[in-house]
């Protein structure tokens, strides 16, 4: 995070540039700061980071980190991360072996009588309309990072008031479970 890049839409288009680390951590206060601080002080760049309680119990959380593979060798990132006492396990998910999804919300300015085109975009992209008022609508898309990128490009034809993406979460494809 030397040069923080809050999100880069083109990550999905250049799979060699990033790695997905699925990191199981103890659910203790300060753990996210330990992980983020490690990336900062070692000069490892993060494309996105998502954290939430994991399946096991309230004791653990899973952090999905998309790492810039050009900022440091993956083995260094994994080696340093695994030294954090609160990090329990690390899985390196090669993009081709992982199911990746993210959630996108976008609020678009559009008048009540001029929504047909936008509704077509919504329909063809698999997005949903989750909020509406007289001069704008809010869309939601849960999909692959590429699908989110594609919808974002479609929305370039409209006036986007706000757009927010969660960063991706990922799990190994079934039959591809491997641990780093």
């Amino acid at each position: 995070m030397n040069t923080p890049e809050p999100f880069l839409g083109d990550v999905a288009h250049s799979p060699v540039r990033h790695h997905i680390l699925s990191v199981m951590v103890e659910n203790k206060s300060g753990v996210l700061a330990r992980v983020a601080g490690l990336f900062a002080r070692r000069g490892f760049n993060i494309f996105s980071l998502a954290v939430a309680p994991a399946e096991t119990s309230a004791r653990f959380s899973r952090i999905t980190i998309v790492v810039d593979a050009e900022s440091a060798p993956l083995e260094q990132v994994v080696g340093q991360l695994s030294k954090l006492v609160n990090v329990v396990s690390i899985s390196d998910l090669a993009p081709k072996d992982a199911i990746e999804r993210e959630l996108m919300l976008a609020t678009i300015r559009t008048n009540v009588d001029d929504r047909t085109g936008l509704l077509d975009v919504v329909g063809s992209s698999g997005a949903a309309i989750v909020d509406v008022d007289s001069h704008s609508v809010t869309l939601m898309l849960a999909g692959t990072p590429a699908a989110c990128d594609a919808l974002e490009r479609e929305l370039d034809n409209y006036e986007t008031l706000e757009l927010h993406r969660t960063g991706r979460v990922a799990l190994p494809r079934l039959g591809k479970r491997a641990s780093a």
Binding site: P73, E75, Q76, G79, Q80, S82, K83
Partner: peptide, 8 residues
């Protein structure tokens, strides 16, 4: 003993 030193 610290594998993070390897190849660093």
């Amino acid at each position: 003993i610290d594998s993070a030193e390897h190849h660093k």
